[in-house]
Amino acid sequence: MAFKQVPQKFTAKINPLTIGEGADAITLGGENVLPFYSFDAAIDNAPKIGIEISDNGYAANIPGIAEFYAGAETLPEIAKKAAAAPGVDFLAISMEGAHPDNGDRPVDECAKLVSDIAAVVNIPIVIEGSRNVEKDAKLFEKLAEALQGKNVLFLSAREENYKSIAAAAGLAYSQKIGAESAVDINLAKQLNVLISQMGVKTDSVAMNLGSAAAGYGFEYVATTIDRVKSAALAQNDNMLQMPIVTPVASETWTVKESIVSEEDFPEWGSSEERGINMEIATAAACLAAGSNAVILRHPESVATVSKLIAALI
């Protein structure tokens, strides 16, 4: 008997979320099929890749990265180089230097920095937090104001600070909100409910469901993303139909496999190659589980994952 293909497309779909403005704007999500199942129905918006820099610059301790950014002195110059890397769809700025224990950069200074970047970069911008909930609440309010009209995604609205971030970034300045939970499906849904109850439209929200480097509890990340996607599509759960954005670099560039030196572990080979491989493997696994965007640091990882996506969709 001939094989009869039954397309597994759902009546529900992931909300399309557009960030950035003008010709360089990108749209995350919008699909009504499982990740990469473009044989079931067209996937209009392929998963996107962000390149990550921070308010402190780039990861200068990684030789290849330092080489890539060579000649870029100021943050806007660094941002311009990052934005021009092959395969990049958006620029992610981690505000790590604003953390009280990590320099405590004042809010106004942060606003000046990101405004200067936004003035020279055309691709969409995603702001990652300082990882301090009190600081982020204040910081995002100011950055949302400074980046008015740029349609920026603020990635770290957490259980502790979603109210002020949703009110400022989401409602007052019409930016996009990323609800962040740490590998907790029930909290992920709850945060979306709470943010929508504040009046932020569900189609202005993305989810960061948490991440881990491959081998470091990644099974939990994969099953969380997977369960959320199936609730969104198969169960038509409109509190989980937000596109998923997964910061990968911040997890993979801290694990032993990526950072121990070749001198200490000669049998493991080049540490930079290991780091790139971890970043690519983790990103590929997140995309296969259902992330609509991943955030990477090494230009070589960006280029490779971009080729992977292009080959599959």
Binding site: N186, L187, V193
Partner: peptide
């Protein structure tokens, strides 16, 4: 349906 603390409200 996936549980969330506000499940009765949605």
């Amino acid at each position: 349906t996936l549980y969330a603390d506000s499940y009765l409200e949605i």
